[in-house]
Amino acid sequence: MNPTIHLTINGERRAIEIDDPRVTLLDLLRERLDLTGTKKGCDRGQCGACTVLVDGRRINSCLSLALSLDGAEITTIEGLAAPDGALHPVQAAFIAHDGFQCGYCTPGQIMSAVGLINEGQAGDDPERVREGMSGNLCRCGAYAGITEAVLEAQATLAESEREKAA
Rank of each mutant, 00 (worst) to 15 (best):
S64L: 15
I74P: 03
R139M: 09
G85A: 13
G11C: 08
T106Y: 05
D98P: 09
I9Q: 04
A166Y: 15
I95M: 05
P3H: 11
Y104D: 06
C140G: 09
R14T: 00
C50L: 06
V129E: 07
C102Y: 06
P107F: 09
N10A: 06
I5R: 02
C47K: 09
V90M: 06
H97M: 05
D70E: 05
A144V: 12
T75F: 07
E78G: 03
A142D: 00
D70V: 02
G41H: 13
T51V: 11
D98W: 11
L29T: 01
V23D: 03
P3L: 11
A165E: 14
G41V: 07
A15S: 15
G11H: 01
A66N: 02
E148N: 11
V114Q: 01
D27Q: 13
I5K: 02
D34E: 14
V150K: 00
S61Y: 03
R128I: 14
G71A: 11
A86Q: 10
T75G: 08
F100A: 12
E148M: 11
S64Y: 15
D84T: 09
F100G: 03
I18P: 02
G37K: 11
M1G: 13
R57S: 10
Q154P: 06
T36H: 09
L116I: 08
I16G: 01
S134T: 03
P89Q: 05
A15L: 11
K40T: 13
